[in-house]
């Protein structure tokens, strides 16, 4: 999933300041899972912003709504009937959601309430870890299911670097050395020969180089 964190309140307040009728828009999927932009967080942010406006004696309409997903048009069109009541949207979707909603209602300014962070997993309650860079050419099989691009601080495909101590990364001792994890895992699976070759430099053209990527699936089209 995509992870995100709420922006500092001051930054949000500065961006919404010119507007009088604001819809605070949550997203019930990825950002709800990472407790940044789901229904609860959307309700809290809207409430805080309403209180701030009242304290300043400003007349501002601030309502909230949470879509199941902001990045899928089928859900965004649910706003069609209410959007005319607002002069700005404050989105708690990820960057993809903010843009998808913005494209549906180009006449209305849309403001991001979150900073989108990374593709990751929920490791534990309240702990999210980055584990994929979305490189477009997944090699996880060769690395025992642990991604060296996302989880090795040096992005080494032919690791380890030799600097890890006690299983920790030399760049950041708070994180495990990805190559230690890879070797342990591959050994556990008895597939050590998978690591014996030299991996050529990563072909990044599958991630970037031709502008934003697209996925086209005719079998899924209308």
């Amino acid at each position: 999933m995509i992870t995100a964190e709420q922006k500092p309140l001051d930054e949000i307040r500065e961006m919404i300041a010119p507007y009088k009728r604001i819809l605070v828009l949550g997203c019930g999927s990825c950002v709800a899972e990472c407790a940044a932009g789901g229904e609860k967080e959307t309700g809290m942010l809207a409430s805080i912003l309403r209180m701030a406006a009242k304290m300043e004696g400003r007349e501002v309409l601030i309502n909230e709504k949470t879509l199941e997903r902001q990045c899928v048009k089928d859900f965004v069109i649910l706003l069609d009937d209410i959007i005319q009541d607002y002069d700005a949207l404050l989105s708690l979707g990820c960057g993809a959601g903010v843009q998808a909603v913005g494209d549906c209602f180009p006449e209305i300014p849309i403001i991001p309430a979150l900073n989108t962070e990374f593709l990751g997993e929920t490791k534990d309650q309240g702990l999210w870890l980055e584990n994929c860079l979305g490189c477009g050419d997944c090699k996880l099989y060769h690395f025992g299911g642990i991604c060296p691009l996302a989880r090795c601080s040096k992005h080494l495909l032919n690791g380890p670097c030799g600097g890890s101590v006690g299983g920790k990364c030399e760049i950041n001792p708070e994180i495990p050395c990805a190559w230690q994890l890879i070797i342990d895992r591959v050994e556990q699976q008895g597939g050590f020969e998978r690591l014996e070759g030299i991996f050529p430099p990563k072909d990044w053209s599958k991630k970037q180089g031709l502008g934003p990527r697209r996925i086209i699936r005719e079998d899924q089209q209308r």
């Binding site: 609860k40 309700g43 809290m44 409430s47 805080i48 309403r50 209180m51 009242k54």
Partner: peptide
Amino acid sequence: LDPVHLLSALE
């Protein structure tokens, strides 16, 4: 308790 309840009480 969802903190939103505390906030809406204050609001």
